[in-house]
Amino acid sequence: GMDVRRLKVNELREELQRRGLDTRGLKAELAERLQAALSGPSSG
């Protein structure tokens, strides 16, 4: 899988935006949010 901790802030935001998620917050928050999205149930 993707290691969200290795991504830069702008990369985290890009991935979040692609999934329609909130791109605001600290890098740690963005990484946590993206990780949750990646490990969560895949819809679609």
Rank of each mutant, 00 (worst) to 15 (best):
L38I: 13
V9D: 06
G1N: 12
E11S: 04
L34I: 02
D3H: 08
P41A: 14
R24I: 13
E11H: 04
G1K: 13
K27H: 14
K27R: 11
E15Q: 08
S43A: 13
T23P: 11
R13F: 06
R6A: 11
L21G: 04
Q17I: 07
Q17E: 12
R13I: 14
Q35T: 10
D3L: 08
R19P: 04
K27E: 14
L26F: 08
R19S: 03
G1Q: 12
S39H: 12
S43H: 12
S42T: 13
E32M: 10
R33Q: 02
S39K: 12
T23K: 06
L16G: 01
Q17R: 15
M2H: 08
L21N: 03
E29N: 05
G40R: 09
V4L: 08
R24V: 12
G44A: 12
E29K: 06
A37I: 07
L16S: 02
E15F: 04
A37Y: 11
A37S: 07
L34Y: 02
S39N: 13
G25E: 02
E29W: 04
L30I: 03
G20A: 02
L38H: 03
G44R: 11
K27F: 11
L7I: 04
K8T: 15
L21F: 00
V4C: 11
L26G: 15
E32H: 10
L21R: 04
G1A: 12
G40N: 13
R5F: 06
R18H: 07
V9M: 10
L12G: 00
R13K: 09
S42H: 11
M2R: 09
A31Q: 15
G1V: 13
S43K: 12
Q35M: 15
S39V: 12
N10S: 15
V9E: 10
R33S: 01
A31R: 14
P41L: 14
S43M: 12
G25K: 02
E14M: 11
V4D: 03
Q35F: 09
R33M: 03
R24W: 04
E11G: 03
E15S: 03
E15M: 08
L21P: 03
V4N: 04
K8D: 15
A28Q: 11
E15H: 07
G25L: 01
L34R: 00
A31K: 08
A36K: 12
R33G: 01
R13V: 10
S43P: 14
R19G: 04
L26V: 15
K27I: 12
R13E: 04
L7S: 02
S42N: 14
K8L: 09
L38E: 04
D22T: 02
G44K: 12
T23Y: 05
G20V: 00
R13Q: 07
V4E: 03
Q17V: 07
A31L: 15
P41Q: 14
E11I: 05
E15R: 04
V9R: 05
Q35G: 07
L34F: 02
L7Y: 04
G40L: 09
R19Y: 03
L26T: 15
N10I: 09
D3I: 09
K27M: 11
E14N: 09
E32T: 09
S42F: 04
E15N: 03
V4M: 06
R5A: 12
E29R: 05
S43Y: 12
G25D: 02
G1I: 14
R19I: 07
A31G: 04
T23Q: 06
R13M: 09
E32W: 05
K8A: 10
R33T: 02
G25Q: 01
L34M: 02
A36D: 09
L12D: 01
D3W: 07
D22A: 06
E32D: 11
L12S: 00
R13H: 04
L12F: 01
S39Q: 14
R18K: 15
R18Y: 04
A36G: 08
D3F: 03
E29Y: 02
S43W: 12
V4H: 05
E14D: 11
N10M: 08
R5Q: 11
K8G: 15
G20R: 03
S39R: 13
D3E: 08
E32K: 12
T23N: 06
L7M: 15
R24P: 05
L12T: 01
L21T: 03
E32S: 10
L21Y: 00
R18T: 07
G25S: 01
V4G: 03
A31P: 01
A37E: 06
E32R: 12
Q35C: 14
G44S: 12
D22H: 06
S39M: 13
L38R: 05
N10F: 06
L26R: 15
R6F: 09
L16F: 00
V4P: 09
A31I: 15
G44V: 13
K8R: 10
V9W: 08
R18Q: 07
A28E: 14
G40M: 09
L26W: 03
M2N: 07
R24G: 15
G40A: 12
L21V: 05
R18S: 07
G25Y: 00
Q17W: 08
E11F: 04
P41G: 14
A31S: 07
P41F: 11
G44D: 12
L16E: 02
G40V: 11
N10Y: 06
Q35I: 15
P41M: 14
G20C: 06
L16K: 01
D3T: 06
L16P: 01
S43G: 13
Q35N: 09
G20P: 00
R6V: 07
R6Q: 11
R24L: 11
E32I: 10
V9K: 08
R5W: 07
E11Q: 11
A36N: 12
L34W: 00
G44M: 12
R19T: 02
V9T: 09
Q17G: 13
R5M: 08
A31C: 14
K8H: 10
A36E: 10
E11M: 05
R13D: 02
E29F: 02
N10R: 13
L34E: 00
P41E: 15
R5E: 10
L16H: 00
Q17N: 11
Q35L: 15
L26H: 15
R24T: 15
L7N: 02
N10K: 14
L16T: 01
V9F: 10
G44L: 12
